[in-house]
C-alpha cells in the first residue's frame, strides 16, 4: 500500500482535512460516556492493524503537511527547538529510535542502512537522503534532536533524570497547548507543570512522576489526552496567542461542526538507552465535530461527555466559552441509545 499525503495547511486558509479512512482511525479518547481525569496507561506500541497504536511512531496522511507546518513555525521562531548541552546524547538516542522504528514499520517510505557508525538514511515522503556518522553532530545539518524531529510528527520532550526528578532539558515543541519550551526548558517536572490548576493538590503529578521514573528500557507506554481547538491549528503556542486567540471567539451555531476540532494527544513514554533520559513524544490528532459525527457511537458519546464535564475542566481545556454551542450541535446526533464499550467505532 502506498500512502497518499494530503496537500493541506494548518494556518491561514486551514485546508486541513481527514479522509474517511483517517476519521475511522482517529484515536477517539473516550472509552465511556463520561470523563474524569485518569492515568489510562497502556503498553505501546500495540493495537489493531491500521490504528495509530500499531506502530511506535504513527505516520499518516498528514505527515508531509505537518512537517511543512513545523518548518514554517521554526523559521519564524527557532527557539521552539532547544537542547541544553548535556542532552545531545539523548538527541542521538531519539534519532536512533525513530529511524529504526520508521524503517522497520514503513519500509516503503523510509530506509536506514548502518555499517558501524556510518549511517545512511532515506526519507522518501520528504525527499531526504543523508549519510552521517552516528554520535558525530558535525555530520548532520543541525543537532540530532532537531534533525529527526523535523521528520517526525508530534512534539517531543526529552527529560533528564537527576535528584529523583525529571528535568525538561530538551525538546521540539511546535504544536503545544499553552506552554512555552523557551520559557520552561531546564525546569523540573513540578515546575514545568506548576501552572496546571489543582493538579498538585490532587497528587496527579506525584503519581505521574513516580510512573515515569519507573519506565525502563525496552518497555514503553502510552496514554491519550485531549482538548478542544478552534480551527485545525497546530501552533497554539503562548508565543503566538495574541495572533490565534481571537479565532477562539469565531464559533457560531452555523460553523461549529466544521470549525470546532477535538484535539487528541497520543503521548508515549520511552526510556532511552545511552542517555538514560526519557523521551516523551506528544502526537497531535485533529478531527472536526462534523467528521466525528460520521461515527454515530462517537457523536453520542462526545455529546454526553462534553455536556456533563466538570466546569473547571472545561475552563482549563479552554472550550468553556464555546461549550453551549458545541453541546447543542452534538445533541442532534444523540438519540439516547446505548454506546458500546471501548474507544473504537462500531
Amino acid at each position: 500500500m502506498t500512502m497518499q499525503f494530503n496537500d493541506e495547511t494548518f494556518r491561514g486558509d486551514y485546508t486541513f482535512h481527514n479522509s474517511p479512512e483517517a476519521i475511522r482511525r482517529f484515536p477517539f479518547p473516550f472509552d465511556r460516556d463520561s470523563y474524569a481525569y485518569s492515568v489510562n496507561i497502556e503498553q505501546h506500541p500495540g493495537g489493531p492493524a491500521g490504528s495509530p497504536f500499531e506502530f511506535a511512531f504513527d505516520v499518516d496522511e498528514h505527515y508531509v503537511a505537518e512537517m511543512n507546518d513545523r518548518a514554517i513555525t521554526l523559521a519564524d521562531d527557532p527557539m521552539r527547538c532547544q537542547s541544553l548541552p548535556h542532552m545531545e546524547l539523548a538527541g542521538w538516542d531519539l534519532l536512533e529510535l525513530i529511524m529504526v522504528s520508521k524503517a522497520r514499520d514503513y519500509p516503503e517510505l523510509f530506509s536506514l542502512s548502518r555499517d558501524g557508525t556510518s549511517w545512511h538514511w532515506i526519507n522518501k515522503p520528504l525527499g531526504i537522503e543523508q549519510r552521517f556518522t552516528f554520535l558525530d553532530a558535525t555530520t548532520l545539518p543541525c543537532g540530532p534532536l532537531e534533525y529527526i524531529t523535523r521528520q517526525a510528527q508530534g512534539d517531543f520532550a526529552l527529560l533528564h533524570e537527576r535528584e529523583g526528578n525529571l528535568w525538561l532539558d530538551a525538546g521540539m515543541i511546535t504544536s503545544q497547548a499553552d506552554w512555552s519550551l523557551d520559557f520552561d526548558v531546564g525546569m523540573n517536572f513540578f515546575e514545568w507543570h506548576a501552572p496546571v490548576p489543582k493538579a498538585r493538590k490532587m497528587g496527579v503529578f506525584d503519581k505521574a512522576l513516580k510512573f515515569l521514573l519507573a519506565v525502563t528500557q525496552e518497555q514503553s507506554y502510552r496514554r491519550l489526552n485531549w482538548t478542544m481547538t478552534v480551527n485545525p491549528r497546530l501552533d497554539t503556542s503562548p508565543e503566538n496567542y495574541h495572533k490565534w486567540g481571537p479565532e477562539k471567539r469565531t464559533i457560531t451555531p452555523e460553523n461549529v461542526g466544521a470549525k470546532q476540532f477535538l484535539r487528541v494527544e497520543l503521548q508515549t513514554f520511552w526510556r532511552l538507552p545511552r542517555s538514560n533520559a526519557l523521551a516523551f513524544p506528544i502526537r497531535c490528532y485533529l478531527c472536526s465535530l462534523e467528521d466525528l459525527a460520521s461515527q454515530p457511537k462517537w457523536a453520542r458519546r462526545l455529546h454526553r461527555v462534553l455536556r456533563d464535564i466538570d466546569p473547571d475542566l472545561a475552563e482549563y481545556k479552554g472550550f468553556a466559552v464555546n461549550q453551549e454551542m458545541i453541546v447543542k450541535y452534538l445533541a442532534q446526533f444523540d438519540d439516547g441509545a446505548e454506546t458500546s464499550p471501548g474507544i473504537f467505532p462500531d
Binding site: F183, D184, G186, M187, P238, Y241, H242, G245, P246, R249
Partner: peptide
C-alpha cells in the same frame, strides 16, 4: 524560570 531568572508575562486580551 530559574534558568532565565524571570517571571512569565502573557497577553491578557489575546482572545
Amino acid at each position: 524560570s530559574r534558568r532565565l531568572g524571570v517571571f512569565q508575562g502573557v497577553c491578557v486580551d489575546a482572545e
